[in-house]
């Protein structure tokens, strides 16, 4: 019994140490920074505790010095969540058919497709987003293509709008959706699909009644893998959205950069982590509930 327990501890020790050093410790440090006073020239005044950073999330001082409600930061949070949700939906809409198509390929071609899907990772994220600027700008490839085929007359004017941000994010996170969904689809026993056909289901109902429910864990994993990092994304909003509408990621980055308000940046990051954990917990509970009802 004891032997087994020590065995388990020894086995999990490396992971535990890794998590402690690279996740728990930074989080604790961040929590500490978030309740410190900001230093005069950036950084923090170590040892001076205050709750100002959290107050700043909801309140501001007006010109007369009164503390009044300020919804700016909340709306940045809301906008970021909205964009992350839209991006998740778009990557799913593109990724699910792609993954479905990949399962119909012969093994060698499927491997080739997998390679192609992961190919963008070989290039730097910044470079890829710059490439999208060239495509999306007025007079860029997209404009020229659409005008050449006569679909549009004038320029689209989408660069530096949320649409461009959405396109860039969808593009960047697509592999994170395709891969888990593809793996989940691959795991489905083809005999179940045959059985559904055999029992009178057409293609659409095979998809909705058998394939998608069985791939649900992969789809959920894909949504989490896209949604979470998307919330903190700041390259695409900055480059393609033109930095006009701030996202949480940009906001946090700015606190540690230009604004030199480390405590506020740390507070924002912590709140983001908290909200995320909460929504993940809700999601998994929801999933468990739907699984229980037939």
């Amino acid at each position: 019994m004891i032997g087994q327990r020590t065995h388990k501890i020894v086995q999990t020790a490396p992971t535990m140490v890794f998590l402690a050093v690279f996740m728990i410790a930074p989080l604790v440090l961040m929590a500490y920074v978030s309740v410190l006073e900001r230093g005069a020239f950036g950084g923090v005044a170590w040892g001076k505790l205050t709750g100002v950073a959290y107050e700043k999330l909801l309140m501001e001082h007006d010109l007369l010095g009164n503390l009044v409600f300020n919804g700016d930061y909340i709306s940045i949070f809301a906008r970021s969540f909205e964009l992350a949700a839209i991006t998740s939906a778009l990557t799913l809409a593109v990724g699910l058919p792609t993954a479905l198509y990949m399962t119909t390929l012969a093994p060698r071609r499927a491997t080739m497709m997998l390679f192609l899907v992961t190919l963008p990772f070989w290039t730097n994220l910044l470079v890829r987003n710059f490439a999208w600027i060239l495509i999306l700008r007025n007079g860029g490839q997209l404009d020229r293509f659409l005008q050449g085929t006569g679909l549009t007359r004038g320029p689209l004017d989408i660069l530096y709008t949320p649409v461009a941000t959405g396109i860039g994010l969808t593009y960047s996170f697509l592999p994170f959706m395709i891969l888990p969904v593809y793996v989940a689809l691959q795991r489905i026993d083809p005999r179940l699909i045959e059985a559904a056909f055999d029992l009178g289901a057409d293609r659409l109902r095979v998809l909705t009644r058998v394939v998608i429910p069985l791939a649900a864990p992969g789809i959920a994993a894909g949504v989490v893998l896209v949604f979470v990092p998307c919330l903190g994304a700041y390259v695409s909003p900055e480059l393609l959205g033109g930095g006009k509408s701030l996202m949480i990621g940009n906001l946090i980055e700015a606190q540690f950069g230009a604004s030199r308000n480390w405590p506020f940046g740390a507070a924002l990051a912590l709140v983001l982590v908290g909200v995320l954990l909460l929504s993940l917990a809700l999601l998994s509970r929801l999933q468990r509930r739907t699984r229980r009802t037939p």
Partner: peptide, 13 residues
């Protein structure tokens, strides 16, 4: 025509 598969192929979900 319906089939009873050797592996049963019941829908697990």
């Amino acid at each position: 025509v319906n089939t009873v598969f050797q592996s049963y192929a019941l829908f697990p979900h």
